[in-house]
Write a protein that binds this DNA or RNA. Structure first.
Lengths: 88, 88
DNA sequence: TTTATATTTAAGTAATTACTTAAATACTTA
DNA sequence: TAAGTATTTAAGTAATTACTTAAATATAAA
């Protein structure tokens, strides 16, 4: 995991929205795409970036790919940001 | 403050390094630039992006501009990230 | 007031990013 | 096996980003 990949992944509004959706529940690529006006291919590319940053897991289930959050990487970002935060 | 500006600002490695430097102590634009191989103009542009995201303050002191952290905005980012964090 | 120093702004450019559509791949079901 | 559905990959493009150098602005000091 490259630290830079995580911040780059988080820098896109659509990708942050994907994370918000996955926070509610696990979703297939198609279910995620349904929440956007963008093409499925575009969403697939965003999912690849999130996967590479290790912010999400992808599990093939038959012809579907189920996406879920990988919460472990968020910690590192929070840890770095927390040091700037008055409230610790 | 636009939320998106903050994530965009944090997505660049050089800008994160600037924040790390300012965490140690307040610095003038020139002192910051001295820590990089990049041109002073390039650093000035990065500082503008950090200012716009309200991650730093800029205070003119004579011919110098003293930069310092604005810690308040970090909180919002931490708050969003924390929800994804098991330990949050 | 001239000269030097600090910083920003402007203009241009190369690289990267976020998309698109079309084609390919993988699986399911008739 | 053929056809349908889900997803990814490829190829192309427009917009954005991160830089550069040169010029402009502001202050300080000779």
């Amino acid at each position: 995991m490259l630290n830079n990949d995580v911040y780059k992944a988080l820098s896109d509004e659509n990708r942050r929205k994907i994370l918000d959706l996955l926070y509610e529940k696990d979703l297939t690529a198609g279910e995620i795409a349904d929440q956007f006006t963008m093409s499925k291919a575009g969403i697939s590319q965003h999912l690849t970036i999130l996967k590479q940053a290790e912010l999400v897991y992808a599990n093939k289930q038959g012809q579907y790919v189920m996406y879920s959050l990988n919460t472990t990487v968020f910690q590192e970002v929070v840890r770095w940001l927390m040091k700037f935060n008055k409230e610790g």
